[in-house]
């Protein structure tokens, strides 16, 4: 569920409807994943899942799986 919604967000942000998310994906694997796209991504994630990602985690996601896990934790805590 989170994975599906996350994939949709990625497809929108990166204008790529073929994009298939995997847990091991990193910024280096996605064309256009720069600092601006990252802010747009974090914003869309926060809005979509009604969560607030802490400032100290902003830049520290090692992979898509890491981000997904963090989203699930925050949702669980809510």
């Amino acid at each position: 569920m989170v994975q599906d919604q996350l994939q949709l967000i990625f497809r929108e942000i990166f204008s790529d409807d073929d994009l298939v998310l995997t847990d091991t994906m990193t910024a280096a694997d996605v064309a256009g994943w720069d600092s601006l796209a990252h802010i747009n991504l974090i914003y869309a994630v926060e809005r979509q899942f009604s969560i607030q990602i802490a400032d100290d985690r902003l830049a520290s996601f090692a992979s898509v799986g890491d981000l997904r896990q963090h989203i699930e934790e925050l949702r669980h805590a809510a």
Partner: peptide, 14 residues
Amino acid sequence: AGAGLAAWSAAAGV
């Protein structure tokens, strides 16, 4: 809600 900016960005790309 939340689709706003991302959907607009995608449409701007199209």
